[in-house]
Amino acid sequence: MIETTPLIFVLLLFIIILAAIIAIHKKDLLHSVILLGIVNTSLAAIFFILKAPDIAITQVAITAALETSIFIIAIHKTERREEA
């Protein structure tokens, strides 16, 4: 398994973990939403590498596009900044 995994795969996993940790610690919620979009897009790329293209299409359409817009609408309804 290890010798067949390309370098991009490991890189994408690191990007996911890094972006998720930064998204938790950001006080600006819009930045967190954009970082979540990065997480979901990298996850879709991982699905594509693992030969599941239909799951990748669904992941991009639902979580990267629709979930982000729903979060933006929710932030617009409440407050953008998290109280420290």
Binding site: D54, I57, T58, A61, I62, A65, L66, S69, I72
Partner: peptide, 21 residues
């Protein structure tokens, strides 16, 4: 080809979401 009903509907809905936003 890979795809189906659910990804197709979600993709079409994304276009309309862009329009509305």
């Amino acid at each position: 080809t890979p795809g189906g009903g659910f990804p197709a509907g979600a993709t079409i809905a994304t276009a309309f979401t862009l329009l509305v936003l």
